[in-house]
Write a protein that binds this DNA or RNA. Sequence first.
DNA 1: ACCTGAACACCGTTCAAGT
DNA 2: ACCTGAACACCGTTCAAGT
Lengths: 181, 181
Amino acid sequence: MRADAKRNYDNLLAVARDVALEQGADASLRDIARRADVGLGTLYRHFPTREALFDALLRESFDTLKAQAEALASVEAPDKALVSWLRVLVACANDYRGIITLMVAAIEDPSSALHASCGTMKASGARLLARAQAEGVARTDIDGADLFALVGALAWLGDQPALAKRADHLFDVIFSSILKS
Amino acid sequence: MRADAKRNYDNLLAVARDVALEQGADASLRDIARRADVGLGTLYRHFPTREALFDALLRESFDTLKAQAEALASVEAPDKALVSWLRVLVACANDYRGIITLMVAAIEDPSSALHASCGTMKASGARLLARAQAEGVARTDIDGADLFALVGALAWLGDQPALAKRADHLFDVIFSSILKS
DNA sequence: ACCTGAACACCGTTCAAGT
DNA sequence: ACCTGAACACCGTTCAAGT
């Protein structure tokens, strides 16, 4: 990548982070380009879709979550491992209001730039769930897809100003019933 | 209301229903006016906000739900009454994809045209929940606001194409843990 | 009273023209 | 290679002008 292109890319990402943190996942791309002092086409060149932009914004979080899932799978008690990992996942989704909707849509859309990352998250969760189930500490009538859906629902709660304050409590309500330890 | 105005109102509502059933709660108002062969200002005259339009579209459902809640409160077993009423509420919300987001926002916004209706729904649910709790068949660590939030989360699941098929199952998972019958 | 549609200030997305 | 911004086809919302 040419030096000026690299500079634009980094600047764009930094500005997008600021804007998206305050305006959420459907922030105006035009506004981002404007604040980054860059032509709109430059934004589209670096991030052909909104999903590509958010995948870049969440890159670190996704990588960390994947590593954490692997680490937790061997050390912690299976129920604690699952719940604490899910808590982090939901928190990451809540960083960008509305991103969870893009993420769930990405699951069934292989052409989405978020598809791979979301597949990884889903698989990591499914593994932690399977271990908890195998050890008899999680109910067995849900699977990895159900778990991802529940994460989506809880992240959505955290995105709604009117409901956000209940999100943590409802997380406990729901997972206390899924785990039977 | 003048005869021509009444005709416009009814027509607008009918067209809006069709469009919203297929496009969801953020259907284009311009498109609705266009399909109703009416000026955009006429739509705004009859329905000053999107919320006002959807409150009108959901009027019957809201009234029916309120009546059902009252009827169920005296005949059915408290746990069955609660769950079956909630199922209908979620189904109504799922009629218009995305309407649940407007509804939850309306709770904390007294100026929303959906505020009253949502308050009524929340109160109806809270009453059924309180009865179930009083009779010892529902866990007591959630309140009416939590219940409404759970309904929102489940309705949101039903709105997501990638998750909708799991919504019914997760409804059961969640409420089987809230009711202890 | 009621209706119309132009006007305004925004979007997302594309692409010819520039360096 | 990369960048720019005008162009296009849309929005929601308001409001002067018409009947």
